[in-house]
């Protein structure tokens, strides 16, 4: 019981429940199928990014280039599909975006693993590099006529339901990407030696190397994985928006990192779960989405998000007794 109370996941789930009940009482539209599907759709892109960030944070690193990788992958993929004749299935698009993301992620990974550079510095640099390269060499115009396959994909639903007024609402297919990615990342982290190695290196890098984990290989995997997930997330975003905007996805970095930290991942490494991250993302998305339902100006979204992050991480830090001992900070 004590351990349950110390789990960030427990408090998040509780908070989500309370929030849902509260908003539902104020505006019953919250529990409508349309709104719930909407929440799922909004969680997809952020969730995919967050899963990558989760793995990096657990390993004791940080990645701030994922949004740039996402923008780069989706824009390049859309351009390539429009120029070259590769067929226009959505599968091709996602594979291509994933591959572009992978190579950019490995670029980060190489710098980090081989040259042993600090992860924040490398990814800050590469984020700027990727964005600059994209705008300078690939293009600056918004692609509004996406390939047919991507448009079709965006209309694809997992499950549809007709409403009494004759319209239909559906759970977008892209949500499945998030679910599958979450299950996969969860499996890797929880059930494979690679995953445990990532926790181990986040807990004690020296001991992990001494124990025989292959640190460099793990780093390549981690940053490669962030790349793939970001590429896929970027493309899902483009499909959802029905356009590919090279200036898009800016400023998302901190929100995603905040959602992951809110989900219980430690910024200093070694801690974090997929469940927590999913809850963290859902919570942030719900807050942003629902404040609109409650007629609260959107400026308040940021204020509320900030408060929730401070409060929830504060509660966990306090209950797990990791109160920072006052070290002359007074």
């Amino acid at each position: 019981m004590r351990r349950l109370l110390q789990r960030q996941e427990f408090w998040l789930a509780l908070l989500l429940l309370v929030l849902g009940t509260g908003i539902g009482l104020a505006n019953p539209a919250f529990w409508s199928l349309a709104n719930l599907f909407d929440l799922c759709q909004s969680s997809t892109v952020m969730g995919l990014f967050a899963l990558g960030v989760l793995v990096v944070l657990i390993s004791g690193g940080i990645d701030v280039s994922f949004a740039a990788i996402g923008a780069f992958s989706m824009y390049v993929t859309s351009k390539v599909l429009l120029t070259l004749d590769l067929g226009d299935s959505a599968t091709t698009a996602f594979l291509l975006a994933g591959a572009v993301g992978l190579s950019l992620g490995l670029f980060n990974g190489l710098f980090i693993a081989l040259f042993r550079l600090p992860t924040l510095i490398v990814t800050l640099g590469s984020a700027s590099l990727f964005r600059g390269f994209l705008l300078a060499f690939v293009g600056t115009t918004i692609v509004n006529n996406l390939p047919e396959g991507m448009i079709r994909f965006s209309k694809l639903t997992l499950w549809e339901r007709a409403l009494p007024d004759g319209t239909a609402v559906g759970l977008p297919f892209s949500f499945l990407l998030f679910v599958v990615a979450a299950l996969l990342v969860g499996f890797v982290l929880r059930r494979t030696m690679l995953g445990r190695g990532i926790y181990a290196m986040g807990g004690n890098l020296v001991a992990a190397a001494r124990a025989g984990f292959r640190i460099r290989r793990q780093q390549l995997f981690i940053y490669g994985l962030v790349g793939v997930l970001s590429g896929v997330a970027g493309l899902a975003h483009a499909c959802m928006m029905r356009n590919a905007n090279p200036f898009d996805l800016v400023g998302l970095e901190l929100n995603v990192i905040a959602a992951v930290v809110l989900g219980g991942a430690s910024i200093t490494g070694g801690r974090g779960t997929v469940l927590g991250t999913v809850l963290g993302v859902l919570l942030i998305v719900t807050i942003n989405n629902s404040l609109i339902l409650l007629d609260i100006p959107s400026y308040w979204q940021k204020v509320v998000t900030g408060l929730v992050i401070l409060a929830s991480t504060g509660i966990t830090a306090h209950t797990s007794g990791q109160r920072l001992r006052g070290v002359g900070l007074c």
Binding site: M193, R196, Y199, A200, G202, G203, N204, V206, A207, A208, R210, A211, G212, F213, S266, G269, G270, R271
Partner: peptide, 18 residues
């Protein structure tokens, strides 16, 4: 050379598993 973030059980078993 222990991992502070992992459980006692996992700390004990990791080397053997590796």
């Amino acid at each position: 050379s222990l991992f502070p973030n992992l459980t006692v059980a996992e700390n004990l078993a990791l080397n053997t598993e590796l």
